[in-house]
Design a protein around this nucleic acid. Sequence first.
DNA 1: CGTAGAGTTCTGTCTTGACAAAACTTTGTG
DNA 2: CACAAAGTTTTGTCAAGACAGAACTCTACG
Lengths: 144, 144
Amino acid sequence: MDPALARWIEEAARLFEAGGIPRMAGRALAFLLVAEPPEPTAKEIGEALGVSKGALSPALGYLVRLHLVERFRRRGERADRYAVRPGAWRKLLQEGIKVLGRYRELAERGLFLTGENPRLKEMRDFYAFLERELPALLAKLEGA
Amino acid sequence: MDPALARWIEEAARLFEAGGIPRMAGRALAFLLVAEPPEPTAKEIGEALGVSKGALSPALGYLVRLHLVERFRRRGERADRYAVRPGAWRKLLQEGIKVLGRYRELAERGLFLTGENPRLKEMRDFYAFLERELPALLAKLEGA
DNA sequence: CGTAGAGTTCTGTCTTGACAAAACTTTGTG
DNA sequence: CACAAAGTTTTGTCAAGACAGAACTCTACG
């Protein structure tokens, strides 16, 4: 494979990893974004990335469970194919919004434990604000 | 220390860790949110958390560098004190927006390498949208 | 049903990261 | 300017995670 593309994939995987996606899953996702032809099999992914199928299988399962990637089979073929789902990025952001909720809950629980505490109040108000406003932003994207 | 509070701190640290903050730094940040009295020294943090000062020092430096925590010294004392900065959460979100920019750049570089590619276009458009809209959301919070 | 290829799970090895303790450096005060 | 306390950096040890390869299971077709 083109070395420039190989480097792109590694860089993408590192960025995804910083966002909480396991390394191998990030590599697979990155490859699926640029694979030519698209919709490769696990075997093709493994060969392109130079990794074993034993390591790939859980990674692909992870991406499918997150609904970032879909798994399907073409008529007459006996190997599954994989593709990035349209809307994968929105899905990822929605997960992010859920995390904001956890931050807010954490702050609320902290307030319960420590009583009035300006530091925790600021935290709670901030994340409550985002939790309230971000869905509207997503809707706006939808409309556009 | 109150066991419930100790559990709260560990949980907070895990949540922060998922967001990319190193474990020890997350613990310190969590403690600073609930420390009573506030503005502890490194020694007090270490004793409360049961960790060594050698592990704490880089962690506190990290939080200070990110501008999440400030380091200062009271007149007549010879140990630094630490406190969560007001606006720390906004800062954290601003860092997040920068990361969105990296996602967009990555998609653009991928488009350059592979030519027209609907998968990458969707990715680029999504992150470009967020990068454009999120600062306005922050401004709205400012005003409120 | 048997077989071959696809997919998953397990196992051993290697790498990476985390932390305590110790060594070292800096800073502030008498 | 010496001493003590604070802060940083280094080092050794231990735990956790990643991955290849092997073993195993499942599925589809003959």
